[in-house]
Amino acid sequence: MHNIYLNNITLIKNERKILSEVNVHFPKGKTSVIIGPSGCGKSTLLKVAAALIPIDSGNIFVGDKNLFKMSPVDLLEFRKNSSFVFQDAALWANKSVYQNMSLPLKLHYPNMENDIHDNKILEMLRLVGYTDSINLIPAALSNGERKMVSLARALINSPELIYMDNPLVLVDPSVAKKIKKLIMDIHNSNATIIANFSSPELIKKIADFLIVMKDGKIVETGDIESILNSKNPNTAIIISSLINHS
């Protein structure tokens, strides 16, 4: 997977600028974390970086390829090697846990044998700590279980690039602990992570690169040391509120 570049991204919704001329890059093999006050556009930036929502202007480059002008084959390859963990799990409601896991596998590995396919699903669910029935539909699961399945779904194709949007929100401490451990493992596996974490502890532990945002604009970017010691008053306020909050 290559570096991800966002050039002059602007996103307007209901005549309000959600993102305003954002220029940022996410280095390959590193964990980049977006921080900023609530409602500053962190989740939106994450989704834009994954090309999940349309933008009004700007470009996204994966290496030297424009994500919006990619051929369907290249785009499918990009999707195969990347995944997204949503804040609210976003499991497909009309599909069972098994079907939720199976769809990405079948899409990218259509010729995979059934045994291998099923084993992979079970293995991944075990890895995230999901122990309930695979035939349940998402509505029958707890928040924590949904998050687990969501993570398992994101990891099933062993992606090189993972977007994570607040994966620890709305989970109880025991599940949070499991998820944190899993994120650490992903971080150590040299995958590229672009995340929006609310846990300062996790940020301190795994963030290689920080992007500070305010009001839809990038305030500052840099490695964790430089950001923590930044002289920028906006960055200082954001960092202090994050630490105080924790």
Partner: peptide, 17 residues
């Protein structure tokens, strides 16, 4: 509509569907 609200459509796009 509920797929959109629950970000299921985004999940499809992210998966490559």
């Amino acid at each position: 509509g509920s797929n959109v609200v629950n970000h299921e459509i985004e999940a499809y796009i992210a998966t490559g569907v």
